[in-house]
Design a protein around this nucleic acid. Structure first.
Lengths: 151, 151
DNA sequence: CGGTATCCCTGAAGATACTG
DNA sequence: CAGTATCTTCAGGGATACCG
């Protein structure tokens, strides 16, 4: 988990992302934030995480600009944690993980939570396309290294 | 990182996914597999991972049906590891991670590897839509718990 | 080259107690 | 309720040596 000095993935955006949000708890906290949770106690109750760990995770998520500490609207004393734009842009990651999990990690008929469009009630899906809108699969994808480095 | 007995995320597909592929090395191996790497030594060289760890990771990826061990086409003695359909379906996860990393984890002008359509050379993007094809943002998304459980 | 077998060590996570 | 401070434990991972 700890990033070593340097390796061939330094210029790979996926690797960097994993370095930043590639740990279990952080993504789960983000998931809960998408679900509308904002307070320390809410996260703790939802995740069953130790308080010191939660505290530390929240701090690094704030440091990394994924969550922002905000004062509650009702003027209360407690702290709230809201997703920033950067955090909200993790939405596709969450959807992709969810979609894969739904497909492969549940037995037929086994229940699971669902992600829907709150306006239409329809399930939310995601797909990959080229810029002109054509759907595309992994077989057509190619990772090209940057000019003066190898990926 | 280790999954505890039970918690509120049991019925959340995202949480299950993270439980299966939520560790740093596994996703990086999968990324390399998308990049066309198949052999033990290739992964090791690319990742700089210790051999015993790589061995163990490959084994669990095989156990989980993400990679499959196959004999090389040239009849050679070495083992190869290929993505299964299940593994290939992690493509959106990789693309989502990559896209987020490109956007937030690189300084302006800093080089990084790119993911392109090998047929057209165009960048590959991903987006989220409802089933009738309308693009949609996180603000419209809603996680609904399964009937008899809370997410 | 493609692993397996050991040993060791660090750091991430839990439990618990305490504070404002 | 929202944390901080300690202490301890334990498993993930590195290094190294060895094997077919």
């Amino acid at each position: 988990m700890v990033r070593r000095k340097s390796f061939s993935g330094d210029y790979c955006p996926s690797a960097r992302s994993l370095d930043v949000i590639g740990d279990w708890w952080s993504l789960l906290i983000v998931r809960d934030a998408f679900d509308g949770l904002t307070r320390f106690g809410e996260f703790q109750k939802s995740l069953g995480i130790a308080k010191n760990i939660l505290s530390q995770r929240l701090r690094t998520l704030v440091e990394r600009g994924i969550l922002a500490p905000v004062a509650p609207a009702d003027g209360g004393a407690h702290q709230e944690y809201h997703l920033t734009d950067k955090g909200r842009d993790l939405f596709p990651v969450m959807v992709a993980l969810r979609q894969w999990g739904e497909r492969y990690l549940f037995a037929p008929g086994e229940v699971h939570s669902a992600l829907i469009d709150r306006e239409t009630g329809q399930p939310i899906r995601l797909d990959i396309r080229t810029q002109d809108g054509k759907p595309i699969g992994p077989e057509r994808a190619l990772i090209v290294p940057p000019p003066e480095a190898k990926d």
